[in-house]
């Protein structure tokens, strides 16, 4: 997966910049020109808005049972129907997005932050430390990701905090390589050498010279990691290692309703639709972002 990502910064650096414009503004302009990117952005924003508004708009208590409406088909009363315990699927689907978005957004932020900083630092310090850490990174990346997550979950429990830290840690490992490779491209350039020659401390060089130049790559990387993390989180929930019931959660809803798939398809369909649209949205966004900063990955973004 990672080897497929070939990074060439030259394209970005060739874009003539007008003074006063930040690289983020450039990206936004690039994104505006991409219809698929705007669709992706809209989907993602819609999901975020729904998740934020959910507690105020849901029609039912997400954990309230209704013995009179077990596995009820979608109707005016229950727009998305009910599950096998008579709980409203619309309510649970809307609320289910909250935990997924919370965990994956915070987790992605965490991954990008620690992975990005460590990667940039490694590229700058180089030498034996770089060599050692990178081999360790290779080793971790060689292991199946879900297996490590299951290990973390069974060692430390399935607390939301643990989930965020686990996902953030694991996905950050992959970010290290991207950040390092990106930085290697310009770590020996004049502006870095100049800062070094002026006696700027290492911290200043990393934060003021290297980080801003890697930021756009990290942004795209973050969007990509986010969609992967959504998948991983849903898989964990589905397997029973995510959030514990009765918290409404998409993966858990699918897992607990799959035995009534033939009797009450709506109980699995809507959470599946929610996960799918969100992941597609994030991927469209990530693809457009990559294009906006001039990264062309040939095969496009892989889902």
């Amino acid at each position: 997966m990672l080897t497929a990502i070939s990074i060439s910064l030259t394209a970005t650096k060739q874009v003539a910049k007008q003074p006063g414009q930040s690289p983020l503004w450039d990206i936004w302009l690039g994104l505006r020109r991409s219809p698929s990117g705007m669709v992706g952005l809209c989907i993602v924003l819609l999901h975020i808005c729904l998740a934020v508004a959910a507690p105020y708009v849901v029609p039912y208590d997400p954990v309230e049972f209704d013995t009179d409406a077990i596995r009820a088909a979608p109707s005016a009363e229950h727009l998305f129907g009910t599950d096998k315990l008579g709980r409203d699927v619309l309510t649970r689907t809307l609320l289910g997005g909250r935990i997924a978005l919370l965990v994956t957004i915070v987790g992605t932020g965490l991954a990008i932050t620690w992975g990005g900083l460590l990667g940039i630092t490694l590229a700058y310090v180089a030498g034996i430390v770089d060599e050692l850490v990178m081999r360790l990174v290779d080793a971790i990346l060689a292991l199946p990701r879900l297996l490590i997550l299951l290990l973390i979950a069974s060692l430390f429990g399935t607390d939301t905090g643990v989930l965020i830290l686990g996902l953030g840690f694991l996905f950050g490992v992959a970010v290290i390589r991207i950040a390092r490779a990106t930085t290697l491209d310009f770590v020996a350039r004049d502006f870095v050498l100049a800062a070094y020659a002026m006696g700027a401390p290492r911290r200043t060089i990393i934060f003021r010279e290297l980080l801003p130049n890697a930021l756009d790559i990290l942004l795209v990387e973050g969007a990509l990691r986010w969609s992967w993390m959504l998948l991983a989180f849903s898989a964990l929930s589905f397997l029973g290692f995510g959030v514990a019931p009765p918290t409404p959660d998409w993966g858990l809803m699918i897992a607990n309703s799959r035995d009534i798939l033939a009797l009450a398809p709506w109980a699995t369909f809507f959470p599946i639709a929610a996960i799918s649209t969100l992941i597609i949205g994030v991927n469209l966004l990530a693809g457009a972002l990559a294009k906006a900063i001039g990264l062309d990955r040939g095969g496009g973004v892989r889902v």
Binding site: F65, K84, L85, T158, A244, P245
Partner: peptide
């Protein structure tokens, strides 16, 4: 699993906070 979920809900009314762990 449904039994545990239903009990969790019923017990909550009595101040019994049941966390569920789903083992394979």
């Amino acid at each position: 699993i449904p039994l545990a979920e239903v009990y969790q809900q019923q017990a909550a009314a009595a101040g019994i906070n049941v966390s569920l762990e789903i083992a394979p």
